[in-house]
Write a protein that binds this DNA or RNA. Sequence first.
DNA 1: TGTTCATTTGAATAGACATTCAGGCTTATA
DNA 2: TATAAGCCTGAATGTCTATTCAAATGAACA
Lengths: 131, 131
Amino acid sequence: MSKVNKSKKQASSESGTPTCDSSLVHLEQVRQVQSEIVTTEKAQQMAQFFGAMADPHRLKLLSALFKVELCVCDLAAVVKMSESAVSHQLRLLRNLRLVKHRREGRNVYYSLADAHIGNLYREVAEHLDEV
Amino acid sequence: MSKVNKSKKQASSESGTPTCDSSLVHLEQVRQVQSEIVTTEKAQQMAQFFGAMADPHRLKLLSALFKVELCVCDLAAVVKMSESAVSHQLRLLRNLRLVKHRREGRNVYYSLADAHIGNLYREVAEHLDEV
DNA sequence: TGTTCATTTGAATAGACATTCAGGCTTATA
DNA sequence: TATAAGCCTGAATGTCTATTCAAATGAACA
């Protein structure tokens, strides 16, 4: 995830393959819905956020930080990744303000940025249990 | 997203680069947290779910279906994508049970699978407005 | 000051993903 | 039945992403 639509050809609005005869589309409804759906900018922002949660390792990291504040070294041990890999992932989470950090001596301790993340996490976890 | 950890080398549990002297890690705490965090299976499942929401186009599709049931043709027009691309994305959403579909004549109408998706969507949308 | 530990960083590589393109399937209509 | 609309599918392609590796930074300790 991370960068959303940097240089990717943006879904050629006009050139697509509209095999569907435009006269048969429910034009009014389409226009109506088009004006009601999320904006591209907001969608990209949301996609970026969801993307941050769309990785098992990052979810484990968050799941750990959900319990207690931990340093990179410990996080790496908990999720069984190299410290470098963990650091890369933490930077991503940091950039999106999902986690915060503080330095104490040579260690850097990470923790969840706010409660929203935890709620969301729980909600999805429960949703998947139901289905 | 989609397939989680199919063949990717699974974070070489032992070989990683533990530059962190193991005697200095907070061993007890690490063990404790390790036993409390989400399982790998659950994390993968959740990652898959979040991954489904981690794309601006899919979010737009969902956002549209949040308003009204629509056929592929209309969805393509709404989000300005080719019908083929939309179909691919809908299949993904269908596989993860985020949307359901029904056939009516030659048209296939899609709609949200359940209210959870809408709630989650709203929650994240609001969260991002706050921050 | 020099060394070591903890973490970060950038480049490179391998893997995953989204779109396109071409073709196939299903249903309705002539 | 033949044709067309609407949708689906598989392969190919370009792009993005996650890890690794090597090296650099910052902080503590001798």
